[in-house]
Simulated assay, not measured.
Amino acid sequence: MTRQPASPAPPDRTVTPDVPPSGNAPRPWQLAAAALSITPLLRYAVARHAVPPGTDRRAGCDACGAPISLHRPWPALGPTARCGGCGARVGAPPAIVELTVLAAVAALLLARPPAVEVVVAAWWLAFAVPLLFIDLAVHRLPDRLTVPAAAGVWLLLGLAALTGAGAAPWLRAIGAGLGMALFFAATTLLLGTRGFGIGDAKLALSAGALLGWYGWSLPVLGLLLALTLSGLVALALLISGRASWSSHLPFGPYLVLGTLGALLLVW
Rank of each mutant, 00 (worst) to 15 (best):
L155K: 09
F196W: 10
C83F: 05
A149G: 02
W74C: 03
L232H: 09
L218Y: 08
C64K: 12
R57G: 05
W74A: 03
L255D: 01
Q30N: 02
F251P: 03
A165F: 14
V233H: 01
V46M: 10
I96G: 01
L41N: 03
T228Q: 08
L223W: 04
L70G: 02
S22Q: 13
A106R: 08
A165S: 09
L190W: 14
A207W: 09
T193Y: 12
P26C: 02
G60S: 13
G199R: 09
I134H: 05
T228A: 02
R13T: 06
P17H: 14
G208Y: 02
T187V: 08
P28S: 01
A104H: 08
V233D: 02
L238I: 05
A204W: 04
L218W: 14
V97Q: 02
L42Y: 04
G152E: 06
V97G: 00
L238Q: 11
R194L: 05
T259W: 02
A122P: 10
F184N: 00
Y254A: 02
P53Y: 12
L189H: 12
C86R: 12
L218S: 00
R72A: 14
P169I: 15
P11N: 07
R58H: 10
I239P: 03
P11K: 08
A176N: 02
S37G: 05
L263C: 01
P40Y: 14
L190D: 06
A161W: 07
R27C: 01
L211S: 00
G241L: 14
V266D: 07
L42T: 00
A181G: 02
G258E: 10
T80V: 14
A168Y: 15
G87N: 06
G195W: 05
P219R: 03
W123D: 09
R3I: 15
N24M: 15
F127Y: 12
P114N: 08
V118F: 08
G261I: 04
D135M: 01
R72S: 11
G65I: 12
L263S: 01
P94F: 12
P40A: 04
A88M: 11
L36M: 10
K202S: 00
V266R: 10
P93E: 01
A92K: 12
L182A: 09
V233M: 09
A128F: 09
R82N: 05
A115W: 15
P67S: 13
L223T: 01
T100W: 14
L221A: 05
L36D: 00
S37V: 15
T188R: 15
L136H: 04
P40I: 06
A115K: 13
A32W: 07
L156N: 07
V266K: 11
A226I: 05
P94C: 01
S230Y: 09
A47Y: 10
V116H: 13
A111M: 11
G87P: 04
A181W: 12
V233I: 15
W123F: 09
C83Q: 04
G60E: 07
A209K: 03
V220H: 10
A34Q: 07
R3E: 13
R140P: 00
R43F: 06
Y44S: 00
A6Y: 13
A106N: 08
L171G: 03
T193M: 06
T14A: 03
R43H: 06
D200M: 03
R13Q: 08
T39Q: 06
A115D: 14
A209M: 01
A33K: 14
P114Q: 11
